[in-house]
Simulated assay, not measured.
Amino acid sequence: MPNALITGITGQDGSYLAELLLQKGYRVYGIVRRASTFNSERISHLLNDIEFIDADLLDQASLIHAVRHSRADEIYNLAAMSFVGTSFLQPVATGEYTALSAARMLEAVRFVDRPVRFYQASTSEMFGKAQTIPQNEHTPFYPRSPYGVAKLYAHWMTVNFRESYDLFACSGILFNHESPRRGLEFVTRKISHAVARIHLGLQDKLKLGNLEAKRDWGFAGDYVQAMWLMLQQEEPDDYVIATGVSHSVREFVDAAFDYIGIDDWSPYVEIEPQLFRPAEVDQLLGDASKAHEKLGWASVTSFEDIVRSMVEHDIRQLTQAEAIIKNASYLLTAQPC
């Protein structure tokens, strides 16, 4: 039974990856930072199947302990401050948790006396002001946010450790990937959640920034398959993971409102200038030919199915929450016989 250690296991990608590895017979360990609360919503159904290790991405010694304790054969470094908007407000913290944390994880791998295969979660945000369309493994990087800059540092550190210390270290340059488990701070989930609330009469307006920004959106459940495949190859390498099709934020809004039967959504959407990025990324479109040829990987979930599943999930979740609140209110106000 191989051992896998995942940082960021409570996030969207971490939850799908943990499911995949458990299905493949792995013993799965997850790094969590000790705190007064533990956000286990995305992995609540896996709590009995995962062993959690207390560690902190800012503490080198705790990461070395985690790698040794887990006796990891594979490490998936997914943890980061991953919301681009927040990275403009907290650039130094973004550097610590997104850039330097990757260097610490690589150092932890170098310190243990056993072969470990390492996956670094890189991002299409490193391309930023894209120099060519589409973008592949040879496209020059031009990040346009502190998040993109921090991820680029982590990406090149992975390459450097691979070449300097002969580590089996790979980077997956993943383009945007969504799911019903996406955080509410991301524009895709913000849209699906607001549309669900509008459908249920709980909200009147959806406030957005740049509707014309285009992204290559895939499904997170498909993309974790690519992560695993990278670590099963004979030689380590870096791969772009993408669908090869881009859609604008406007098209995402179209698809979300279409699911609830609204064609003209203009009365429900307001444009807020403060929601525009200080440095905008206009279009990201990935060329995953290398992953297709070498990994045998392909995206299988359509853009429409992704949007539909997110809106459907939010409607169901909100409906259940409303039912619980109503039932609780009834019990509190019910008169004794």
Rank of each mutant, 00 (worst) to 15 (best):
G261V: 04
Q203N: 12
A108N: 01
L206N: 05
G30W: 01
I241A: 01
R114C: 08
L275D: 10
P134H: 03
G172T: 03
N176A: 09
Q203H: 11
D56I: 08
M126R: 06
A72R: 06
E293M: 09
H199N: 15
D305I: 04
F52A: 01
A291T: 00
L20S: 04
H247W: 04
T10I: 00
E272M: 11
E163R: 11
R250M: 10
E234H: 09
T243G: 05
E125V: 08
S289R: 10
T139F: 03
S289Q: 09
V249W: 07
L17K: 04
S171M: 02
E251V: 07
E235P: 11
Q90K: 14
G172I: 01
T7V: 06
G261M: 03
D56P: 09
I6Y: 01
S122D: 08
D263G: 13
C337Q: 15
A4Q: 00
A288E: 00
S62V: 04
D56T: 10
P140T: 01
Q335N: 15
T333V: 12
Y97T: 14
F127S: 05
Y76T: 02
Y239N: 01
P115N: 07
E74M: 11
S299P: 00
V195K: 05
Y223T: 15
S145N: 01
T139M: 03
Q320H: 14
K190L: 14
E125D: 09
N327Y: 15
T158S: 05
G8F: 01
S101F: 01
V187G: 04
V300T: 15
P2A: 07
Y239R: 00
V92D: 12
L284E: 04
R277L: 14
I325K: 11
R114E: 03
Y97S: 14
L200P: 06
G95Q: 04
F161P: 02
S289L: 02
V92F: 12
V112T: 06
L275R: 13
L78K: 05
N3I: 01
N136K: 08
F141M: 14
Q232I: 03
L152E: 02
E125T: 11
E235Y: 13
M105F: 08
H138D: 14
L47R: 03
T243W: 06
Q23F: 02
A288I: 02
Q120S: 10
K207N: 15
Q135A: 15
N3E: 00
T188I: 13
G148H: 02
F88V: 09
S248Y: 09
H138Y: 15
Q233W: 05
T7N: 07
H138R: 12
A55T: 06
N77V: 11
S246P: 03
Q335L: 15
F38H: 07
P267W: 09
R114P: 07
E270H: 12
R68W: 05
E74Q: 14
Q335T: 15
D204L: 13
D264C: 08
R308I: 13
E251D: 08
S171H: 04
K151G: 00
A256D: 05
E312K: 10
S87N: 02
T333A: 13
F276Y: 13
D13V: 08
F186M: 15
T123A: 05
V149T: 13
T94C: 10
A35S: 12
A55G: 05
A291P: 00
Y223L: 13
I306R: 00
F88D: 08
E125P: 03
R189L: 10
